[in-house]
């Protein structure tokens, strides 16, 4: 699993706003692609559609040939369990520890607690936060919180990793660190899509870029 295709995708919201217009794009398996564009260009809508949090008004979104917007309610959780997602606002649970935040996807899939501990420790070690596993996320810096979000996204070893403005609140040095993590996951086979409007960051890396403007692909 890892090839993603948007085929003539339109997304119109009830307000009449057209977030995507005839978008066709392919993200090859094992690639790491930047999705860029101005605010409101349609980047987040693309990720929402890929996460099946919304459906396209028209067109198809295929993941390894399967139209994911037609997945049954029963299959949808299994599909999402095979995706990793990172958000600008981290979406961490303030009342839970770093460990519990990262363990959430594994517990959702009913994994044994011993295996949960092993995998969470490995993921936290990878992002350099193993020693802070018992702290609540709000006691961490913004960059550390983002790394917790990344650890949670990769702990179930997804084949697709989606990131929505993952460096939005970070300084350039921390942004480079985060990107290095994504590149590391990409190198072990994950298809990575990073939605970002940080042109400097994108141009500093040698990855394919898909640029959107007013819901249409311009690059």
């Amino acid at each position: 699993m890892g090839r993603i295709e948007f085929l003539n995708v339109y997304k119109r919201y009830p307000s009449g706003f057209e977030a995507l217009r005839d978008l066709s794009v392919v993200f090859e398996e094992g690639s790491m692609t930047f999705l860029t564009g101005h605010s409101g260009a349609g980047k987040t809508t693309c990720l929402k559609l890929l996460l099946c949090l919304d459906n396209p008004t028209h067109g198809q979104i295929l993941v390894n040939g399967v139209n994911v917007s037609r997945l049954s309610a029963r299959r949808l959780p299994h599909y999402r369990q095979n995706l990793g997602a990172v958000f600008q606002d981290h979406k961490l649970l303030a009342a839970r520890s770093v460990f519990d935040n990262v363990a959430l996807p594994l517990r959702v899939s009913h994994m044994r607690e011993r295996e949960v501990r092993r995998r969470v420790s490995a993921a936290l070690n990878r992002v350099g936060l193993l020693e802070r596993e018992s702290l609540p996320p709000m006691q961490l810096s913004t960059g550390e919180q983002q790394r917790v979000g990344i650890a949670r996204a990769v702990v179930s070893r997804p084949k697709i990793l989606l990131a929505d403005e993952p460096t939005g609140n970070l300084d350039p040095e921390l942004s480079q660190d985060i990107m290095a993590l994504f590149q590391g996951f990409n190198e072990v086979g994950a298809t990575v899509i990073v939605a970002s409007h940080d042109r400097a960051l994108i141009e500093s890396l040698d990855n394919p870029v898909v640029e959107l403007s007013h819901g249409m692909r311009v690059r």
């Binding site: 299994h78 599909y79 095979n82 179930s156 084949k159």
Partner: peptide, 12 residues
């Protein structure tokens, strides 16, 4: 395929 019964992702 338009409405798959089985996806290419494993059920964990």
């Amino acid at each position: 395929p338009d409405s798959p019964k089985q996806g290419p992702w494993p059920r964990t």
